[in-house]
């Protein structure tokens, strides 16, 4: 049984080559070897959504695959999305609306929001709730998260100059 294998992954735009144990999950690899601790682990069985990352542009659970499986793929984490300002408006809306408390679920929530908001159209509140159905949050009760995503969807759809301010905050 081989103790470690070499993998090549593009993570947040950078080519990464590392030796990993085959049993190391992508989540453990990102958090441990690459110190990308913005990806969180809440259940290690694909239920809570805290570990979501982008794999070749699609949102997946990094706890539900081994790093070895990701060799040859592109992975993007919350750190990468933040640094290339891909979700700055979502982060701002979450901040203004206080759509997070402890913050542990937040990177996963943002991944789901990013995927949903990358699709055309303005989702209904029910569609937003449906999209969030695999993201557990124990703190907020979800409504603020739905509000924040809805605000971004409307702002992105609205012509420039007519952006909504989030729910009176800071007024």
């Amino acid at each position: 049984m081989s103790n470690s294998i070499n993998i090549n992954v593009t993570v947040n735009g950078e080519a990464v080559s590392r030796n990993v144990a085959p049993r190391e999950t992508l989540a453990d690899f990102l958090r441990g070897s690459l110190e990308l601790t913005g990806t969180h682990m809440g259940c290690e069985m694909g239920v809570c959504g805290a570990c979501l990352v982008l794999l070749d542009g699609r949102v997946v659970h990094s706890c539900l695959m081994f790093a070895a499986q990701a060799s040859g793929s592109e992975v993007e984490t919350i750190e990468g999305l933040t640094e290339r300002a891909a979700i700055a408006d979502i982060q701002e809306a979450f901040h203004q609306r206080n759509a997070l408390q402890c913050g542990f679920c937040t990177p996963g929530m943002l991944m789901t929001a990013h995927a949903l908001l990358s699709q055309p159209g303005v989702p209904t509140r029910d569609e937003i709730r449906d999209a969030l159905s695999g993201n557990y949050c124990r703190c907020t009760g979800y409504e603020s998260i739905v509000d924040a995503i809805e605000t971004v969807a409307r702002n992105r759809a609205a012509p420039a100059g007519s952006k909504n301010v989030v729910a009176e905050v800071g007024a």
Binding site: T25, M45, G46, C63, L64, A68
Partner: peptide, 23 residues
């Protein structure tokens, strides 16, 4: 792997070899 990986993590299954057929 969406069902298999949890089973491996819980050590309900423990094969010697994992054959990745995704490619």
């Amino acid at each position: 792997g969406q069902s298999l990986v949890p089973a491996l993590a819980l050590r309900l299954q423990a094969p010697q070899v994992l054959i990745d057929i995704a490619h």
